[in-house]
Nucleic acid binder design. Sequence first.
DNA 1: CGAATGATCCGA
DNA 2: CGGATCATTCGA
Length: 150
Amino acid sequence: MRLVEVEAYLGASDPASHAYRGPTARTAPMFGPPGRSYVYFVYGMYYCLNVVASRSGVAGAVLLRGAEPIAGVGHDPRALAGPGKLARAIGLTTAHTNMDLVRSALSIRDAPPVASSRVVRAPRVGLSQHATTEEPWRFYVRGSPGVSRP
DNA sequence: CGAATGATCCGA
DNA sequence: CGGATCATTCGA
């Protein structure tokens, strides 16, 4: 798949982040070394995949919110549009949290660059209770069917 | 809009 | 312990 939508989450400085109130059993991977997975379970039925993106001891991760199928002729082009759908498509569960995403069966690699004119920066999606940081930490590819919400 | 559906976390 | 919450999705 080709990733087309992500959001950044920090730690103590980010009230919307799971890591806001410090490490717990669930959020431990967010405080671990970069390049690992942080998978969590929400709403009783969906999993979401993050890539830890800050050094050990500092919370920081990128939520993968949307992707386009690559070899997907005959596939639903929106099957990966949304964090829950994306994780489900790969068959992820919390058993896959804290895995090495640099060298493993599931890995992330560079893709051909996307023109900066097609990259949209916007406020993050789905935050309710927590006071949200006003920072637009959502990034997605304009016009891609893999984006969860335009 | 609201239900589905259960782990997680905080307060008591 | 108990209940409120939740980085979602789908269907009316």
